[in-house]
Amino acid sequence: MADTLIDATTPRQARPDARAPELSWRESTTGYLFLAPWLIGFFGLTLGPALVSLYLSFTDYDLLSNPRWVGAANYVRIATSDPKFSAAMRVTFLYVALAVPLKLAFALLVAMMLNRGLRGLPLYRAIFYLPSLIGASVAVSVLWRQLFAGDGLLNQALKLVGIHGPSWISNPDTALYTLVALSVWQFGSPMIIFLAGLRQIPKDVYEAAEIDGASRNQQFWRITLPLLTPVVFFNVVVQTIDAFKAFTPAFIISGGTGGPIDSTLFYTLYLYQEAFAYFRMGYASALAWVLVVIIAAFTALSFLSSRYWVHYDG
């Protein structure tokens, strides 16, 4: 044990030819010990509960009595006779379809503006990133309510130009779009990644294009975008997963109801209601696993399609 500790504290020469099977059990034990905090977290807090949730998804469980095995009944109900499931799916897919492209387009736009060699770039970068740090918080959702309420800031501004706006957050026709706007506003993290990607594109490509007489527009479509596709791909995958999992904004803005008329009933919110408002833990677990499958399917789809549009060569 003492040796192990010495090993761990003594910097080792890097062995470029080292292969995993050659590690002694002592060495691997050390490795696992260093991994332990993460492993305990993964098995205890992620994998364990996930497996229990998988089991519960085949039961009827209201927390107070013991879970009762019902076979695939929960999944059958989801697939065949749950109108709220379809409502939640509609809302969620609309949200993902709007929020992800808009947010990425906006992030790319800002990244390109910042990439033009601005003075004080670090400051701007920090300012634009700020909404992403606080965007998912309760406070911002509350702020959003204030902005888009009937007598909120937006309508007071509209009043100055003579427009009488509706109560955006409490109207079933517009409530979801305020949530899309909230998501677009948090463009910071994809923006930073785009910015890094833009910096990777060699300047001489642009210079050559300019000499050949390519317009700015052509340069964007023929050079910038194709060379940026690996970054776009990464952002699409990450943001799509995030959008499917969005919860806090809808929960705060609708007060947990998903209203008005289920217009902000995100899938995760519906899942939450079934679990913690109506105590149908078994059904909620089944809903959660369906969401896992949906997200996995979308991610797989992104990866499969990537060979047709993502260019990894410079």
């Binding site: 009937g150 509706p166 109560s167 007060g255 109801t257 209203g259 008005p260």
Partner: peptide, 14 residues
């Protein structure tokens, strides 16, 4: 009106 009533979240504060 319905879009005003929808602001109520079922608690005294709202």
């Amino acid at each position: 009106a319905p879009d005003t009533q929808a602001l109520d979240r079922g608690e005294i504060d709202s």
